[in-house]
Computed example of a mutant assay.
Amino acid sequence: MNLIAWSIVACEIAFWIVIGLGLIVRYVFHKKALGLALLALTPVIDLILLVIAGFDLRSGATATTAHAIAAVYIGVSVAFGKSMIQWADDRFRYYVTKQGAKPAKRYGMEYAKHYMIGWVRHLVAYAIGAGLLLLTHWLVGDAARTEALMGTARLWTLVLGIDFLIGVSNFVWPKRAKAEA
């Protein structure tokens, strides 16, 4: 694996370690401000990945799928970061500290609406990530060196469209609770 691939792995691990530490400090040690500060470090991790990928390409490297995934990672992290932290927070609070309400499962129209909200976040992630891919393609100025970026952008466009169709299908065929099925 190359530098960028290892950087993505390291950033993903760091992301979840920072979230875990933030939740432990917040709920186990009751240091809410410090816990929030740790949770607020997640965008710094994205910035580190962006700098590493940018430096690698600026140094003359040919873009790989790993470079493209770095842009996808950043887009997803920005668009879904807050909701992922909230998801982890709710489950930590309920399952580890035995506080708060059990995270509810969604069905029917509530699930369909929630899925479409997720799709809008996916669209935001796409706009950020694809924007970074296009910007990098333009800045490098060499189509041969950035083909992996454009290939990833095309594939992501397809995935975004499929995700939208799945979201619409949830309104047509709503998800049912297992007892109803």
Results as ranks from 00 to 15, higher is better:
residue 177 A to M: 01
residue 107 Y to S: 01
residue 167 G to C: 07
residue 138 W to L: 07
residue 68 A to C: 01
residue 79 A to S: 11
residue 103 P to I: 07
residue 6 W to N: 12
residue 134 L to Y: 13
residue 170 N to V: 05
residue 29 F to P: 00
residue 142 D to W: 05
residue 161 G to Q: 12
residue 157 T to Q: 06
residue 38 L to H: 05
residue 145 R to Q: 13
residue 113 K to S: 05
residue 167 G to F: 06
residue 56 D to A: 10
residue 98 K to H: 15
residue 115 Y to E: 11
residue 7 S to I: 10
residue 75 G to S: 07
residue 48 I to W: 08
residue 42 T to V: 13
residue 19 I to C: 03
residue 22 G to L: 05
residue 84 M to I: 15
residue 172 V to C: 00
residue 10 A to Q: 00
residue 133 L to V: 14
residue 162 I to S: 07
residue 118 G to H: 05
residue 22 G to T: 12
residue 159 V to Y: 01
residue 117 I to C: 01
residue 69 I to Y: 09
residue 181 A to W: 05
residue 63 A to L: 01
residue 151 G to W: 11
residue 4 I to A: 06
residue 175 K to L: 02
residue 33 A to V: 10
residue 126 Y to L: 05
residue 177 A to N: 00
residue 84 M to Y: 13
residue 73 Y to E: 13
residue 166 I to L: 07
residue 30 H to G: 04
residue 37 A to N: 01
residue 67 H to C: 01
residue 66 A to L: 04
residue 92 F to M: 15
residue 38 L to A: 12
residue 73 Y to K: 11
residue 62 T to S: 13
residue 23 L to T: 08
residue 116 M to D: 07
residue 175 K to G: 00
residue 6 W to R: 10
residue 103 P to G: 04
residue 45 I to Q: 04
residue 8 I to D: 12
residue 160 L to H: 07
residue 89 D to H: 03
residue 47 L to A: 14
residue 1 M to S: 14
residue 29 F to R: 07
residue 153 A to N: 15
residue 142 D to Y: 03
residue 94 Y to Q: 04
residue 65 T to C: 00
residue 22 G to K: 05
residue 37 A to C: 00
residue 175 K to D: 00
residue 120 V to W: 04
residue 72 V to W: 06
residue 148 A to F: 02
residue 32 K to V: 11
residue 85 I to N: 09
residue 153 A to M: 15
residue 28 V to P: 01
residue 165 L to H: 10
residue 56 D to L: 03
residue 139 L to G: 03
residue 86 Q to T: 15
residue 79 A to L: 04
residue 78 V to T: 10
residue 80 F to P: 02
residue 42 T to I: 10
residue 44 V to Q: 07
residue 102 K to T: 01
residue 31 K to F: 03
residue 67 H to G: 02
residue 133 L to T: 12
residue 181 A to N: 14
residue 39 L to V: 14
residue 49 L to T: 10
residue 120 V to R: 02
residue 145 R to F: 03
residue 168 V to K: 04
residue 15 F to E: 09
residue 32 K to T: 14
residue 177 A to L: 00
residue 66 A to Q: 02
residue 179 A to W: 02
